[in-house]
Amino acid sequence: MIKEVIVVEGKSDTIAIKRAVEADTIETNGSAIGEEVLRRIALAQERRGVIIFTDPDHAGERIRKIVGRHVPGCKHAFLPQEKAFYKGDIGIENASPEAIRQALSELRTETSDATGEIAWEDLMEAGLIVHPDAANRRLLMGKLLGIGYANGKQFYKRCTSFRISKAEFDKALREMERQTGGV
């Protein structure tokens, strides 16, 4: 049984989570999260801890930001898009139990006193911003670092708020270069 309560978007996500692990969930019912749901999430964080596990898409990212802003200190689970894709639909409900367990085993905790070691220049030098293939490079680095895909500014924010170390970043960068042939 997972101690923390997992925040998901809807019923289908809860079903997929329960196929993979024994856990309690709170459903946001989409990106129009009401105050009552946010209060329940805050209470869960206070008593048991919270894992935010939303779809790897724009709406999921919006929910992740709203919950994270209202309930600080949550843990985050990220599922790569290709593991959540089925017949044109992206969502946790499409992921295999193994993919869900993998994402839940690689949790990241956001901190409010983000003073990470990664500088904006590190992202530029790594070709993660201001590069013709920056989006694809961020996609792969996000997987390797376990922080999911994000645009340049959000990727930088995740590196700092999840306290990605320079050593961790450099190791993922070397692996990315190995996988892409240094392109």
Rank of each mutant, 00 (worst) to 15 (best):
L43G: 07
A16T: 03
H58F: 10
I129A: 03
D24E: 15
P80V: 02
S31P: 02
A119I: 09
G30H: 09
F78M: 11
E175P: 02
R62K: 15
L38G: 11
S105L: 06
V8M: 08
L43P: 01
R48F: 11
Q154T: 15
E98T: 13
Q45M: 12
T180R: 13
P72W: 04
D113L: 12
G10I: 11
R62I: 13
E177F: 06
E177T: 10
N151R: 12
A23Q: 04
Y86T: 14
E177D: 15
Q81I: 14
M176H: 03
K166F: 00
F53M: 05
E110I: 13
N136P: 00
P97I: 03
Q45C: 05
G49P: 09
T54C: 10
R69P: 00
I15T: 14
K166D: 01
H58K: 14
V7N: 00
A20K: 02
I17C: 12
D133A: 12
S96F: 05
E98I: 10
D122M: 07
D113P: 02
K83A: 10
K65Y: 06
E36I: 09
G142F: 02
A59V: 13
A172T: 10
A119T: 15
G127I: 11
Y86V: 12
K171M: 05
E93K: 14
F85P: 01
R39D: 11
K166A: 10
L43F: 08
E9G: 08
A99Y: 02
N29P: 01
D170N: 14
L38T: 12
R64D: 03
N151E: 13
G68V: 03
R47C: 04
E46K: 15
V5H: 00
F162W: 07
Y149V: 06
D24F: 06
Q81Y: 05
I147D: 00
H131L: 04
T28P: 02
T54W: 00
M1K: 08
S31Y: 08
A103W: 00
G10R: 10
A114V: 08
M176T: 01
E22P: 01
A172S: 12
Q154I: 13
V50G: 03
D13L: 05
G88N: 10
G127V: 13
E106V: 07
E117V: 11
S12C: 07
D113N: 14
G68H: 04
I2L: 13
K83E: 11
V130G: 01
H76A: 03
R101W: 03
D113I: 09
I15S: 07
S96K: 11
E35Y: 04
A99M: 04
E177I: 07
M141L: 09
S31G: 05
G34N: 14
R47H: 08
I52L: 12
I92D: 00
G30V: 10
G30Q: 08
